[in-house]
Design a protein around this nucleic acid. Structure first.
Lengths: 343, 343
DNA sequence: TTGAAAGCGCTAACAA
DNA sequence: TTGTTAGCGCTTTCAA
């Protein structure tokens, strides 16, 4: 239980450096924050002292005075998901040149957990908060509305963002998929995914568009939670085991990972893709173009989304009012072999 | 540049709650930290005030007094890498029940960038610091040694850790691969990977063991930086284009992502795996078992590593001296189809 | 069980 | 250009 251990030096403060350099602590503070306001010889002496003593400022004190910190908090739905990781990376890279760091929380697709994380974040007076999705617990919204931190929601669009919103239209994702299936002449189109808030939009969009363009037999297959590759694989297996006359000929998975699982299973079973069944995913997984057949997919600029969130937060920090701004980053359909003329 | 905006309430302090509840601010502070030390009726009144006013404490002030914060900083080599993500997830999950959050930095495989991140982290007086790897800039080591925060290095082992170390033996990874190739009767074994510090160990281990077990023609092929799937694919293509008598029959890639790229390329080219060439990776990528042929791999408990790091930091926070502790979490070889009796 | 006083290490405002 | 003073919102210590 020994707390004082040899070798673990205590932290020095501004005043220690000041004493060593023969100036006041304010001069040291200035050298750190606005060196151009300090005379050259003085500055040199202070810098030498900082170097000699290995001084590292305590940002908690600065944060306390300023009432806000220099990091941005982000809640992700899952850290293991490569698609989310791309957005996180975009944010981290966009914030780095501004000297802002990122504090990450993993909500595991639970709005309650998200609220807990946000509460912890708000207690740190973050310079900004980035969320995934636009469906949040009332407490999350309340906490963030009261906080002064700029908030950016991502991965979806909403008419009433908490702060700003940079995302894409998940209903349009589903519609785009259905239109694509229509274009390749699919008869029995299916959308497969677990009913999370975002997925629900993709599913609804798919079913609505399918109806409108005359894909009469379109339906939704609910998927279980779990490891996406296996879930996708099992989903395909389940569909193939159905009576032949009810067998779908076009599958839209709400995520590429699911689609890849299905594609691999189809290959294994000798089911021809896209001839017997077309497969479409979402997210443009790096593996998609490498597979045989290559995977068609719908995607949004995932990394760019994080980058744009960083830009918005930077703007807010510079005094802009970003509230109410909603950016639709758009979608693209990448048609590869897995949906090449199914019918 | 307007700073005061309608609707964005200022934060309340302990004293505002105290005034509302008719107690001193100290009582409010106690209700938050040690409610059992406050009389029931008083506590109820205070809790009601907290609730009514939507009070969220300012942790920067607490951190300042205590000289240490309640988050753990982690530097990862890359956020997009699923293998690293597993360790991050383990850390986040292990820390969550302790009320500790994780601040992430992406070093992008640069020791300099790592040092910059660590400097920023140390300035926040973190409750702990987790690093990937055991090769760091001298400045990183200096900063962390002076800081009081417990440090845990991961993903490798070292005799002289900065604090504690939870990892696996990267030299043993290479040795295990070479032994496996020997066991399946490989003749011309190759290890492929970019020479990062960790990879260098795997490569050296592979070459050393290969020599010892009589794999005379073992050699290393340097890989470029870039998207791993493509790099792996191109590496395989390059080897196959070589004169047939120099063609390797067993490939150990330092990462599964590379190996998957190679495996897919082999399939595409009609090269039989493992008959013509055996392929082995590292990391147990979720896709490995789903491929045809399924991918053999060597792996360490990646998520467990993060979990163990969390446990060590928790121990340190409870007063344990964790410095000098080194844990080897061990390796396992998962032999699947891609290395089934090559020779 | 509660409160008063002191101060954590910084920054903002003002003075010299 | 540099220094002095007064806190930021908490927690620690000590007193009541």
């Amino acid at each position: 239980m020994s707390k004082d251990r040899a070798g673990s030096a205590e932290f020095l403060g501004l005043r220690d450096i000041a004493a060593h350099a023969g100036v006041s602590h304010m001069t040291v503070s200035r050298v750190i924050r606005r060196p151009e306001t300090v005379a050259e010889p003085t500055r040199q002496r202070v810098l030498a002292a900082i170097e000699a003593l290995g001084y590292v400022p305590n940002l908690a004190a600065r944060d306390l005075v300023r009432g806000s910190s220099s990091f941005v908090c982000m809640v992700v739905s899952s850290l293991q998901n490569v698609f989310f990781a791309a957005t996180v990376e975009g944010l981290v890279r966009g914030l780095d040149p501004l000297g802002l760091q990122v504090m990450l929380g993993d909500a595991g697709f639970s709005a309650e957990r998200e609220a807990r994380l946000v509460r912890g974040f708000v207690a740190r007076r973050p310079a900004g908060v980035v969320l995934m999705g636009t469906d949040h617990a009332p407490e999350t919204v309340r906490l963030l509305s009261r906080s002064r931190a700029p908030v950016v929601e991502t991965w979806d669009l909403t008419r009433a963002p908490i702060g700003a919103c940079v995302g894409f239209d998940n209903v349009a994702v589903g519609r785009l998929a259905a239109r694509h299936f229509r274009a390749i002449g699919a008869r029995r189109a299916v959308v497969l995914g677990r009913s999370t808030p975002r997925n629900r939009k993709r599913i609804a969009g798919f079913l609505a568009e399918a109806k409108e363009v005359g894909l009469a037999h379109a339906r939704h297959v609910e998927l279980a939670d779990g490891h996406a590759l296996r879930v996708g694989r099992e989903a395909l297996a389940g569909l193939l085991d159905q009576a032949a006359d009810d067998r779908p000929d076009a599958l839209f998975f709400v995520s590429d990972t699911l689609a890849i699982g299905a594609l691999l299973e189809a290959t294994r079973r000798g089911v021809a893709v896209p001839q017997e069944v077309a497969i479409l995913g979402f997210g443009d997984h790096p593996l998609g173009p490498e597979l045989t057949p290559s995977l068609s997919t719908i995607t949004a600029p995932l990394e760019e989304m994080g980058h744009e969130a960083a830009r918005l937060i930077a703007g807010a920090l510079a005094g802009e009012d970003i509230r109410g701004r909603v950016f639709d980053l758009g979608l693209s359909l990448i048609a590869r072999e897995s949906t090449a003329r199914a019918g």
